[in-house]
Design a protein around this nucleic acid. Structure first.
Lengths: 196, 196
DNA sequence: TTTTGCATACCGACCATTCGGTATGTTTTG
DNA sequence: CAAAACATACCGAATGGTCGGTATGCAAAA
């Protein structure tokens, strides 16, 4: 039961990652999962409920990072630990090559438009992220690791927006392989600007 | 002829902005334009060709900014002039409220996945943007407006990525109205960090 | 100057296919 | 044997696309 349902959800996630909601059909879902149509309607009420379940799972496993697993006082250590930790969170769950940046963002936008409840979850996630960074910055400042007149939250925003922006820029320049490297480079530049 | 075709394209753009390619149907296109199905197939070979034409028009009128219309040596003036210029480019063409950030990015992602040629155009656009910013930074540095050890292009990236990232962050925090304000604030913070 | 011929612009009925969804099985499992 | 886990057959609606037709304009021919 739980196994079949998970199999359906993982397969559906891969499809929804590469195509829009409407573009994914039961035909494909059946082919990719090996299940018949009856199985789908046994576990889910309709197509939208499958999509909702997929997004729920996706949000839990892929979107936000668990900041408690990262250094919370030392900014330098935080930056260096970020991507290894992020990568570890996701491995073992899905073929990560398919979960590339373009598809991840496309899926987020699709969910934002289709699922009314999704927006508030994303908002909460992003606010938590901002809070975590802000607290980190404040700690780094009080430890005199950094020194600047910029308020904590605004500096936190510079780091966060840089990481979002690098993804978009990398997508647009067809250079998604370099996202981690470029993010580290930009974070480092920011860091040097505010280092005490 | 040209008028009818434009009417179709503008109406189709609005639909493709708010829904995915597959989710937009001829039924809706007919209702919104007032044209019959025959008209569409008179002007276009099929649905995909309509989408392509829409994206072509969209790219020309909405995406990139004309950097020649902006100050190219003074960074401060450039930042202040950016959004007024950008806004001017777009007015008079479509109801801009509908062309909000979420829909614009969603359309870009959809086009990236559906139209094979789109990626290269976006890439070229983004590379031009980077070149323009880099040149601007170089000028500002040689005028001693700014002073930092960071290379021109990397500093340009910080500004560009900040603007992309702010859009994403604003979408995720459901705060798209504030995009311009926040971008100006972040740009200003960056500016203060590197000002001579 | 009128008529003929043809191209353009558009309509709407029609078509095959595909879609999501249901109703009814059959098999497996506890 | 009863309930859960599927499979199969089928349905109505919607989809993208076609096709024959018409109304209008415009240029060449008479």
């Amino acid at each position: 039961m739980e196994e079949s349902k998970n199999h359906i959800l993982q397969t559906a996630l891969l499809l929804f990652l590469e195509k829009s909601y409407k573009a994914v059909t039961f035909k494909e879902l059946m082919e990719q999962t090996g299940f018949s149509k009856g199985a789908f309607f046994h576990y889910f009420k309709n197509k939208k409920e499958i999509f909702e379940a997929v997004i729920d799972m996706y949000l839990g496993h892929f979107m936000a990072i668990d900041f408690t697993k990262l250094p919370q006082t030392n900014l330098r250590e935080f930056l260096d630990a970020y991507f290894p930790t992020a990568r570890k969170m996701r491995t073992g769950f899905l073929p990560l090559e398919l979960v590339n940046a373009t598809n991840r963002y496309a899926l987020m936008f699709e969910a934002l438009r289709i699922l009314p409840d999704f927006k508030s979850k994303v908002t909460r996630d992003e606010e938590n992220t901002l809070a975590a960074w802000t607290s980190l910055i404040a700690n780094a400042r009080s430890r005199q690791e950094i020194k600047t007149v910029m308020p904590d939250e605004q500096l936190a925003r510079l780091f966060i927006d840089a990481s979002h922006g690098i993804v978009i820029h990398s997508i647009m320049t067809d250079n998604v392989e370099a996202i981690e490297t470029e993010a580290l480079s930009s974070w480092n530049n920011l860091y040097l600007l505010v280092k005490a």
